[in-house]
Simulated scan of single mutants.
Amino acid sequence: MTALSEYQRLETTGLWREGPERQRREVIVGFRDASLVLSDSRNDVPLSHWSLPAVRRVNPGEMPAIYAPGDDDGETLELTDETMIAAIEKVHRLIEARKPHPGRLRSILLGVGLVTVLGLGIFWLPGELVRHTASVVPFAKRSEIGKAILADVARISGAPCASGPGQRALASFSERLIGPVGGELVIVPSALSGTRHLPGKIILMGRDLVEDHESPEVAAGYILAERLRAEASDPLEELLHWAGFGATFRLLTTGNLPGDSIAGYGEALLATQPGRVADEDLLAWFEAAGVPSSPYAYAVDISGESVLGLIEADPFRSAPPPAPLLSDGDWVSLQGICGE
């Protein structure tokens, strides 16, 4: 690991300024495997994530110690805890010691390897680096990346459908099936049949799910199934595997993806075929969401043979759901969301 074992899970308080014009606020500073995590001191909600290799001290030798997450960032963090300051400085001394030095043969042979493990302290396999990077990216950054992928998808599918009444109905549908905080449903006009998931709890839907069915239960079933796929396979990890090692390392160390790393991913995403999810898991979600599973099952396989478990164990087979998914008016508006 980057941080030495004696500093594992070290925490202290500090004063964080989000930008040059912002007020300082007290935060909890957590010293983690390859990062500093800044959390609200009142409710422990993460506010910022700094990569340790990129952290720099802007006032060497002075107290309180003032740090910034990089050369061009307006954030600052003031620390007075000598143990935390010593931990950060010790990591940077280790990083400096591992830098290549002119005249040494191993600097030529191992230069690339040292850059790879800079600030990590171990040799990461690509899969491990992807998993670690995805695990430390905050939701706001995931949403930003999801929006960038959506823009790339739009080059092929066209701009998302957004008629006024339909958009309001879609927002209501999203709140019912995804939740009121974070995440959204997006309907695209072409190139997609079914659903796909993006980072930031964004679910893409093809217009066929609302235009080709008489009730919203089919679309709801596809959305619930896609949410299960997103839980089983992190969409950010899927992107990073596609973008490659360089883009992943850049995201880990700077908090940003290279500008061209997403180009073309939208086409690759639309070309993939979603896998089946376990009937037992899906049925539990249908019941919790108040959605019958049979309409979705017959949409997947009109014969019912391959989805018999979803039909026979439909949680609302003998009784109606507790509440309609949408009003009749909202469903009609949603069906016209891609209209002129």
Rank of each mutant, 00 (worst) to 15 (best):
T2D: 14
T2W: 11
A3M: 14
L4N: 10
R9L: 10
E11S: 14
R17L: 04
G19I: 00
P20H: 06
R22W: 09
Q23L: 13
R25H: 02
V29P: 10
G30I: 02
F31L: 15
D33C: 04
S41W: 02
S41G: 02
V45E: 07
V45S: 04
S48T: 05
H49I: 01
H49E: 08
W50F: 03
S51Q: 04
L52Q: 10
P53Q: 03
P53L: 07
P53T: 03
A54S: 14
A54L: 01
E62R: 14
M63I: 01
I66W: 01
G70T: 03
D73V: 12
T76H: 00
L77F: 02
E78C: 07
V91W: 01
H92K: 12
K99Y: 05
R104I: 04
G113R: 10
G113N: 08
V115N: 03
L118G: 07
L120D: 12
G121A: 08
G127Y: 03
T133L: 03
S143A: 14
G146D: 05
G146H: 06
A148C: 02
I149C: 06
A154N: 06
S157D: 02
C161P: 08
S163G: 10
S163N: 14
P165H: 05
G166A: 09
Q167K: 11
R168I: 06
L170H: 10
A171T: 06
S174A: 15
L177G: 08
E184V: 04
L185H: 09
I187V: 15
A191H: 11
L192M: 05
L192T: 03
T195C: 05
D208P: 00
E211L: 02
P216T: 09
V218Q: 06
A220S: 07
G221Q: 06
Y222L: 00
I223D: 00
R227L: 04
A232I: 02
S233D: 15
D234Q: 12
P235F: 08
L239N: 11
H241C: 10
A247K: 09
R250E: 15
L252E: 12
G255R: 07
G259K: 10
G266Y: 08
G266Q: 12
G266C: 12
E267K: 15
L269E: 05
A271H: 02
P274A: 05
R276G: 00
V277R: 01
V277S: 02
D279Y: 06
D281E: 14
A284Y: 00
E287A: 11
A289T: 02
G290D: 04
V291E: 02
Y296G: 01
Y296V: 01
A297Y: 02
Y298L: 14
A299W: 02
V300L: 11
I302V: 11
I302N: 11
S303P: 05
S303D: 08
G304K: 04
E305T: 00
I311F: 00
D314S: 07
F316V: 03
A319V: 15
A319N: 14
A319L: 13
A319P: 01
P321N: 05
P324R: 09
P324L: 13
L325G: 08
V332S: 12
S333E: 13
Q335K: 14
C338T: 07
G339I: 00
E340S: 11
